[in-house]
């Protein structure tokens, strides 16, 4: 049952992403992308990562996409029916490049067989112990990085005196 659910969610994710990248207007692209991220969060849940699934919904679909939406609305991108999409010629070469990379890595990935591990499920307790014991320094560094990002964003966003 869960196996079928994984494949259905994988198809939903890929279709949502394709719709997002072919959409003319950024606002519609964001809405399709939120759909894709929700199904990706469900995939994370199926892969025994409930915390990551929750953070995906809260941070990605919630915060980051809403931030995108705020900025797009602030910039006034124009009417949706007047938005232009890159022409067919601009789609051709990137699609060829992408498909070449897709096939080459995909063949490698599909042929990747490992012995199935009989591993126990990862509990939230185990996740938290790994996060704060083993990678405690990384948490400190990442919090400093977030602080620097806030300072940089404030610096870039301030109004200059004319």
């Amino acid at each position: 049952m869960e196996t079928y659910l994984f494949y259905i969610l994988a198809v939903v994710t890929v279709i949502g992403t394709i719709l997002a990248i072919t959409e003319k207007h950024p606002v519609h692209a964001i809405v399709h992308l939120v759909t894709s991220f929700f199904s990706l969060a469900a995939i994370f849940f199926l892969l025994a990562a409930p915390l990551i699934a929750m953070f995906e919904v809260i941070i990605y679909a919630g915060a980051v996409m809403v931030l995108f939406m705020f900025v797009i609305m602030m910039l006034d991108p124009g009417r949706t029916d007047q938005a232009g999409r890159p022409g067919l010629r601009q789609w051709l070469l990137p699609a060829i490049l992408g498909v070449i990379i897709l096939v080459s890595i995909g063949v490698l990935a599909a042929g990747y067989v490992t012995a199935p591990h009989t591993s126990s499920a990862i509990t939230v307790r185990e996740f938290a112990v790994t996060l704060f014991r083993k990678y405690g320094v990384a948490i400190e560094i990442i919090s400093m990085q977030l602080l620097f990002a806030v300072v940089g964003a404030l610096y870039l966003g301030r109004r200059r005196a004319p």
């Binding site: 025994a48 490992t114 591993s119 126990s120 790994t130 996060l131 083993k134 990384a138 990442i142």
Partner: peptide
């Protein structure tokens, strides 16, 4: 992380998110 049963991969997913 799910395949090998260790939490390290999930920790790095969290790092990528931050």
């Amino acid at each position: 992380a799910c395949h090998w049963g260790t939490a390290d991969g999930q920790v790095f997913a969290l790092m990528i998110m931050a």
